[in-house]
């Protein structure tokens, strides 16, 4: 693997080779379902299987790649919700740490509002989810809002990356 200096990642197109841009942008929806998917991608992009694997590894280390995997239809497997809490600034870090430590919690963000701590929690079933939320309230001493999904309008087609240099060319 080619070592690269750690640097603040950016989206400036020139930081990525054309095949790397294509790899990040064009395979969000459908990874080839063949025994050697990274070889198939390499063939499509004109690079080797090894180059694809190394690029993905690098993206993961840089943090731009969360994972090569699946997004699931909400509610299709297990139970999930979005929860919000209003926490005084002096307690926010500590409460956030308690929330993040729960295995049911995936995303846990600060947001700019009186309700300033927002997290997504998921569990195998509704009872387990409710138990986790109650445990969070008890452990932190703050109430939460349980904002259940009613429906999901988006088809989740992935995210079309607007490379900075590409923008300039296209403008």
């Amino acid at each position: 693997m080619t070592p690269r200096p750690q640097q603040e990642p950016t989206c400036h197109g020139e930081d990525y080779a054309p095949f790397e841009r294509a790899l990040l942008n064009d395979y969000q929806h459908e990874l080839p379902l063949v025994p050697r998917p990274f070889a198939a991608i390499g063939e499509q992009l004109g690079v080797s299987e090894q180059a694809v694997l190394e690029a993905l590894q690098r993206f993961r280390e840089q943090g731009v790649l969360s994972r090569v995997g699946a997004t699931l239809k909400p509610g299709a497997v297990g139970a999930a919700t979005l929860a919000a809490m209003g926490i005084p600034e002096r307690d926010l870090e500590q409460v956030a740490a308690i929330v993040s430590a729960r295995p049911e919690v995936n995303h846990n963000y600060e947001r700019e509002h009186e309700l300033n701590l927002w997290f997504v929690a998921m569990a195998a079933d509704d009872a387990a989810l409710r138990a986790a939320l109650t445990a969070i309230e008890n452990e932190t001493g703050y109430p939460l809002l349980d904002l259940r999904l009613v429906c999901d309008y988006h088809l989740d087609l992935g995210f079309d990356i607007q490379w900075t240099s590409a923008n300039e060319t296209d403008a």
Binding site: V64, S66, G69
Partner: peptide, 10 residues
Amino acid sequence: VIRRFGVIVR
């Protein structure tokens, strides 16, 4: 059940 299967970026 799986909505998309591929590269998931941050």
